[in-house]
Design a protein around this nucleic acid. Structure first.
Lengths: 226, 226
DNA sequence: CAGTATCCATTTCGATACTG
DNA sequence: CAGTATCGAAATGGATACTG
């Protein structure tokens, strides 16, 4: 965190925030992650040493607080940190609107499913246990199959067959589902274009969009600009 | 600009924006700088090689456009770049609110006077040529004396005595004026506390706050949160 | 679970000087 | 004016393995 040598508030802010990974760690904290390995799941490409280092910097900067709760370390945002939320959101909207080209290295089924899991509208699902199976046709076999299980108001994501009846199977490329998630493709559009195949009773197939939705940023962008 | 390997829009945005100096260059462009050496004035601690490199990155990212106008290179923000304005402002407000401790290395009379110059409300000044002299008691002699000359609707900043009659002389530390500019100290408060001395006719002394004001960010913060 | 430790290739950046 | 060229010190951070 070397200084810019400027009193300008933007410069002072960036002294704290411009290091690689920093804002992604803050994003994770804003989304509710509180433990080290929980944070890691959100930034899997970051080494643990580096994550540790960033958390310490942010603590020194008064953005992150660390405490021990029952022997577990808990990271939380201070008020100073929480006030970064509008900035992170604005960055997300800008990124969504303007930085659309995703390389293959940007696609990651673990991150996508984890992200979907975070915001699944449980109340839109049937009361009875309901399973949606995904299979991606463009990734290595071991990451290609996923199951979303909603039961008793809880969501589970598995990368192994949990053995329950499947209500709908979704077959597509990881890229297609990522684009849908980002709001760049609509569910019906993707189905019509043959980029997604849905297998199951018509009623369940129709429900998929409301069950899964899209990222909250995509919703916000759609709300803001059509 | 190495990738984060995430489809998350915040990550994609930061791939473009998180490198050191990048957002400060964008800030300068937002403030209206258009030529290479004009940009340099706003980021004097940045080497020209690095500035050149950043401008190229931003051009590749579609944030900055470069053109030749009468043999001069002109840098401008594209729409994509202009849409960063709310983000830069939000960062500035956050920095102003939360990152208040300035080291000595953050204080720079050239930057401060240049920044003041950018936003002087000429219409608040008398019609006749009016000069305010500054002398800083905590910086090397060669950077200690400044003159703001407003005449004919134009503002000039000199670091040498232009020779005109001086309406008010402002004597203070560079730190004090910087704090006033950032809105952390008010003009009357600073005078009462003896941190600023004003010399000149009472009427002119009273006018100084409206002639010089404070940074637009400080105004925005005051408006937003008292 | 929650981190440390170590290592080193790579990058980055600041300083300075120079050019058409 | 608008950059390039060059250089070396410093840091960054990715990979991997390890610990209480």
């Amino acid at each position: 965190m070397s200084s810019y040598g400027q009193f300008c508030p933007v410069a002072k802010a960036m002294e704290v925030l411009d290091e690689r990974w920093t804002l992604l760690v803050i994003r994770e904290l804003l989304l509710g992650s509180r433990h080290f390995n929980e944070l890691r799941r959100g930034v899997p490409k970051m080494s643990p040493a580096l994550l540790s280092k960033r958390l310490r910097s942010l603590e020194r900067a008064g953005v992150v607080g660390r405490s021990d709760v029952g022997g577990r370390t808990v990271y939380t945002l201070t008020e100073r940190g929480r006030e970064l939320e509008p900035i992170v959101n604005a960055l997300g909207l800008w990124g969504l609107r303007w930085i659309g080209d995703l390389g293959e290295e940007d696609l990651d089924p673990h991150l996508l499913m984890w992200d979907i899991r975070r915001t699944i509208p449980v109340e839109a699902w049937p009361r009875a246990r309901t399973v949606v199976a995904f299979s991606f046709d463009d990734v290595p076999r071991k990451d290609a199959a996923w199951w979303v299980v909603v039961a008793g108001g809880e969501v589970d994501i598995c990368d192994y067959d949990p053995g329950y009846d499947v209500a709908v199977e979704v077959r597509c490329s990881l890229e297609a589902l990522t684009r849908i998630w980002r709001g760049e493709l609509s569910w019906p559009g993707a189905v019509k274009a043959g980029r997604v195949e849905l297998d199951g009773p018509a009623e369940a197939r129709r429900a998929v969009p409301t069950w899964l939705g899209r990222s909250t940023l995509a919703d916000a962008l759609a709300a803001a600009s059509g």
